[in-house]
Simulated scan of single mutants.
Amino acid sequence: MRNLPLPDRDSSRADLTASVREYNYKIPRGHKLKEDEIAQLLAIYDRYDADLGAASKILKGAAFPKSLIDAVYAAYDRTQEGRLLYSLRERLFKGVDLCPICGIDSVSELDHFLPRSEFKPLAIYSRNLVPSCHDCNHIKLAGFGEQADGELALIHAYFDELPNVHFLEARIDISEGGLVATFQVMTDVDLAENLRDRLKHQIKTLELNERYEKEINTYLMSHATGVHLEYARDGKAGVRRFLRTQARIEERKLYSNHWRPTLLRALSRQEDFIDGGFVGIFNVPQDILDDLFDEEG
């Protein structure tokens, strides 16, 4: 979970005027956009910004003609590759590699933070469009319509400022040759009001622990060689040092609360793991280990 830079909205007027138009195909379709309607749509954008992306009825544009609402809603389809608003998609994707929600997969879709189906005036507003991976976007779509009163909102990658401290931890359980890591929000870290509950809500709602479970074993195997060598050189102290160093490297490459450095930090504190327990987890064939140690001399 990480923040993304707040996108500019300099093209908002141009995006609306270019994509919301009246055209004829046997019968008139679309909408002939008026100057006062542009001003009202931009005012809705202003309200969205002022409320930091919080849902409200005013953002639905109930007073607008249906033809205008439907035209703005349909304009989102023009953000696809080769179409009129593709440059908007390109700008939002630029510099964002991994999904800011899960940190597992590359970004491939734009998530409407407030659902497009309910908040049609925001369908092509840059600050309501968050780059995400397919799984995060579609799990969210499957579980959310309009946010109910009192329901916790998911974290907004643009507006919810996450502190630059470690607030995510992994609880490690090793049994019967298996390793299970459960990610959770730390209880002893000072977080803004309501932020802790929303982070916990996001982990549960987007099934992040279940999804991380599928990634952990494959990821850990990439460190099997280093862990075995450090254990042979300096026992558990060597393994602890290796894991902590690798956590710092990955934290700088990714971000503080990415699941990978969080997992490595947790493993560096897991005495059973660093004192030989990793052998059963990695389960590296002995002939490969023999070759490894021979090469090391």
Rank of each mutant, 00 (worst) to 15 (best):
P7G: 05
R9S: 12
R9P: 00
R21P: 08
E22K: 11
E22T: 11
Y23C: 09
K26C: 14
K26V: 15
I27A: 15
P28W: 15
P28E: 14
R29N: 09
E35A: 14
E35Q: 13
E35T: 14
E37W: 07
I38G: 13
A39F: 10
Q40P: 01
I44W: 00
I44R: 03
D46S: 14
Y48M: 08
D51Y: 08
G53N: 06
G53T: 05
A54R: 02
A62N: 10
F64P: 04
P65R: 02
I69P: 02
A71Y: 03
A74S: 09
R78D: 12
E81K: 15
G82R: 12
R83M: 15
Y86D: 14
L98P: 00
I101R: 00
G103W: 02
D105L: 13
S108Y: 02
S108G: 05
E109F: 13
F113C: 02
S117E: 12
E118S: 12
P121R: 02
A123M: 06
Y125P: 00
S132N: 04
S132T: 09
D135L: 14
K140N: 04
A142D: 08
F144S: 12
G145K: 11
G145P: 03
Q147M: 05
L154V: 07
I155F: 05
A157G: 06
A157W: 00
Y158M: 01
D160I: 10
N164Q: 13
R171C: 08
R171L: 11
R171I: 12
E176F: 07
E176W: 01
G177P: 04
G178H: 09
Q184R: 10
T187C: 10
V189A: 05
D190H: 12
A192Y: 08
D197C: 00
R198N: 02
R198C: 01
K200C: 08
H201P: 00
Q202Y: 00
I203L: 14
K204H: 12
K204A: 14
N209L: 02
Y212I: 09
L220P: 04
T225L: 08
T225M: 10
L229V: 14
Y231H: 11
K236N: 13
R240S: 10
R240M: 11
R241M: 13
F242Q: 06
R244F: 07
R244V: 07
A247C: 06
R252D: 10
Y255H: 11
Y255T: 04
S256E: 05
W259T: 09
T262N: 07
T262S: 05
E271S: 15
I274V: 15
D275E: 14
G276H: 08
F282W: 05
V284W: 04
P285L: 04
D287W: 12
D290C: 09
L292W: 05
G297E: 09
